[in-house]
Structures are given as structure tokens and as C-alpha cells.
Design a protein around this nucleic acid. Structure first.
Lengths: 128, 128
DNA sequence: CAGAATCCAGGAAGATACTG
DNA sequence: CAGTATCTTCCTGGATTCTG
């Protein structure tokens, strides 16, 4: 009896989601993914540079997440050199770039939350 | 040239985050939270109504997430009645409403992803 | 109707050590 | 420098059952 709400399922990359929003959250959700994309806005960055930008993340996690982002087509990887002192650059793909507007909106909201934070236990109903 | 990277920490609700984006992702991230807020855009909804709108979610999870959203000040809860056939309404708070622009951007992107890259079934959704 | 209590599975994140 | 391998911990989501 879903009269008002959609009941279709949406697929991406072999998985199914209840709605497009879930797809988005799976692609860029989690603790770090959006932050990584944030730091790639200004241009390509190397593994170590990203590591410095992400206080607290371990190489293991960063490596894994970059691999996921690459697999999902949001980030591209390019390796320079052939011997041990390697140089790798990560950059946003066109697809990754298409996320930037949403990322900006999220960042704005996050900043707003942080600056206005405090006693948020008070809840006022939103006027319609 | 890493001056654009910040290394301070941001706090919200007793926790610390590496950046405001992380705060946002913690508040509305996960599989369902954003979707719940999405379905509250049009006005207050009852527990059962939300349950119908979220295909696959269990009452346990919905209840837990609503409690979290309420605790974080994004959603307000109002109970009508005093005897067992209870009626509860959930609505966006003012704070929750402040997330709507970002939510819209995310939804747009999600739709874009699904239409351009997804293997999807047709969406028959009622216009809001 | 609207949940709470309990237990469980899976995945994401983290620590540590090692390598091309 | 840029990872990988392995193990562990923690958290999210889920299933089932029960109650005001």
C-alpha cells in the first residue's frame, strides 16, 4: 500500500538501494570519503599530501578508501616513476567533479552547524 | 603548499571531528538518516507512515535513528493520546530544516548518478 | 500503534608490521 | 614514497520477541 512513496529500487555498481539518496550516501558517505573529495577540489594531490590533510587517518584506511573511490569512478589515480621512490597523484574525475555542488552544500551546512553549535537540546518545530 | 588544509579539530555534541564535513556526515550519514529527513520535508509524518516510506527498514532501526535525529536536534517528536492506540508525529526542527538545501543538492546528485550511471528500474515517484 | 529489549552479523575503521 | 597484509575493535544495521 505505498500510495505516496516510491517503491522502486535503484541500482548502482551491482548493488540495490531504496532510493537515489542511498546511492549517494554509499558513494560518499562514511567517515572520510567526502573529506577526501573535499581536499581534492583544488587539484591533484599525492598520497602523502592527502595523508597530511586527513588528521587521524591511517595509511591502510586511506589506501582502501582511495581504491573504492577509484573503483566507483570518482577519483583517478596516476603513477609516476617505475622504481621505489614512486609518485602517485589522485585527482577528481569528471564524475567526481559532479559531486562538488553537493559537497559545497554539505560543507556549508557543516560549518554552520559547528559555528552555531551549543545547546541544541532545544527543539523548535519548523514552521511550514 | 598545504595551507588550505586545516588541522584543528571541531567539536559537536561531545565528540570531536577533523572537519565540519565530518560533523555533517555523522549527523546525517549512514544508510537511512538522510532518507528519513527527505521524507519529512513535506511535513510531519507518523511512525507508521515513515515506515512505509522506507522500504526494508525495520522498526528497531527506524526507532533508533529517529531517537538519534531527535537527540541531535534535527527532528522533533510529538505524541498524541495517552492510551495504547498512540499517535506520534515526527517533524523537522528549524535546525533540521537548515539541512534541506544540502539534502536537495545530494538528492539531485543521487538522481543524476542513477540516471547516468545506474542500472535502474524506472522511478515512478510522486512530485513533491 | 508505536515502540523497547535483546541478541547477532557484517562492514568500516584502526593498529601494527612489512614491501616494491 | 606509497602502499599491502593481517588482525582486532567498534559501530551500524537487522531479526525476533515483547509491551504500554
Amino acid at each position: 500500500m505505498k500510495t505516496e512513496c516510491q517503491s522502486e529500487y535503484f541500482g548502482f555498481s551491482g548493488k540495490t538501494y531504496p532510493c537515489p539518496l542511498s546511492v549517494a550516501m554509499d558513494l560518499v558517505g562514511g567517515k572520510w570519503k567526502a573529506v577526501i573529495l573535499y581536499h581534492l577540489q583544488g587539484g591533484a594531490k599525492r598520497f602523502g599530501e592527502l595523508h597530511e590533510c586527513l588528521p587521524g587517518i591511517t595509511e591502510t584506511i586511506l589506501s582502501r578508501l582511495l581504491k573504492q573511490l577509484e573503483h566507483d569512478g570518482l577519483v583517478s589515480r596516476q603513477v609516476f616513476g617505475i622504481k621505489p621512490p614512486l609518485k602517485t597523484e589522485y585527482a577528481l574525475t569528471v564524475f567526481g567533479g559532479s559531486f562538488l555542488p553537493a559537497l559545497a552544500a554539505l560543507t556549508d551546512w557543516g560549518n554552520q552547524v559547528v559555528t552555531e553549535r551549543g545547546s541544541l537540546s532545544v527543539q523548535t518545530r519548523r514552521a511550514l
